[in-house]
Amino acid sequence: MKLDHTATGVYAIAATPFHPDGRLDTVSVDRLTDFYLGCGVSGLTILGIMGEAPKLDPQESLAITRQVVKRAGVPVIVGVSAPGFAAMRSLARGAMDIGAQGVMIAPPPSLRTDDQIIGYYAQAVEAIGEDIPFVIQDYPLTLTVVMTPGVIQKIVNNHPSCVMLKHEDWPGLEKISRLRAAQKASEMRDISILCGNGGLFLDFEMERGADGAMTGYAFPDMLVDVVNFQQAGNREAAHDLFDAHLPLVRYEQQQGVGLAIRKYVLKKRGAIASDSQRKPAGSISERAKAEIDYLLSRVARYDKRAAFRT
């Protein structure tokens, strides 16, 4: 089955495990996949920014895709963003042939005008083929490309293969409301909206009409619980759990070291053997690790999943 507009829940943005010498850790790929599944995710998104995709060669990208798809048993979305459309097409077609359910496309930072953004996605769809479902990644904080709700509406309406928005604008709550209003008024096709930004605004994003989360916070099981609570109408439980994790969510959002923090916590949770990144890589100091351990101890007062021996 291919990805469609009904997707909901939590699609974890997966890290890519490496050995300390930079080699892919294929054993930890399985281990991490099992970890995400045990957290109750609805799907996985691999080869994204958090997955260090630009540091992989094409063969490695397809090998990871094949390994995750074979093991996951849930929908897998593959990040295929690339400087050129030839590489994008090759990875997109290859990933779908392996069994991925869809691909994610981020706009290049060079885009500035609305027409440039709309035109870029038209060319991307032409390159990969209209038969491949795709996700728009709207992440202006990192990508520096600002997509208005109107631009997103045009991309969605122009391309039936666009089935999901990965919403990572900040502030972005009003954007979600405007997009859902456009759907209600039949001004835009129905799409799934999953939210990123480390889950930093997930509590209210769900209340604005998001269908779930697509992010890499090291406690995807917390994200799953928050989404389930909100979908069940249990607002207080959702906010109570989210608030307990918020200091760690915030700490993870530091530019340049966020991935190092996430991998450190994932290692403590037993999801990966090493918190190594492939170079060039950011790092965290021993003092930072002590601060993370302290935050984990505070989260554990409410959520025992954060209780570790340090």
Rank of each mutant, 00 (worst) to 15 (best):
G48L: 03
D190F: 02
K2Y: 09
A124Y: 03
P220F: 10
R93L: 13
A273N: 14
T33H: 06
A12Y: 01
L111Y: 04
D21P: 09
L266F: 15
Q59G: 13
L246G: 01
F204V: 14
D97R: 13
G198W: 01
A185D: 15
S192H: 01
D25A: 03
G51D: 03
V78G: 11
F204E: 15
V146D: 11
D225C: 06
R262L: 15
D21W: 11
S42R: 13
I136D: 08
A87P: 00
I77C: 01
R287C: 00
L62P: 05
S28R: 09
Y294P: 01
D221L: 07
A122I: 00
P171Q: 04
R278I: 09
A7W: 02
E207Q: 13
G102V: 05
L111V: 04
D57C: 10
L44P: 05
I118F: 12
E187P: 04
A12T: 14
K70C: 01
L295W: 11
S161F: 00
I132C: 02
F308M: 02
S90L: 03
P107T: 07
P109A: 06
P17S: 08
T215C: 15
D138K: 00
F85C: 14
A63V: 00
S276Y: 11
P107V: 09
K166M: 09
F242Y: 15
Y139F: 12
I272W: 00
M206L: 15
V27A: 15
V125G: 06
E174Y: 01
L56A: 06
P17D: 07
G256M: 08
K268Q: 06
P220C: 05
V68H: 03
R89E: 14
D57N: 12
V103F: 07
V135L: 03
T26E: 15
T33N: 03
E236W: 04
Q116D: 13
T45Y: 01
T310F: 15
Y251C: 13
P83H: 09
A238H: 02
S274P: 06
A63I: 00
S186Q: 15
M214F: 06
L241R: 13
D225Q: 14
P20L: 10
Y36M: 11
T310P: 04
F85H: 14
T45P: 00
D4V: 02
K175F: 06
L173M: 13
A244S: 11
A185F: 10
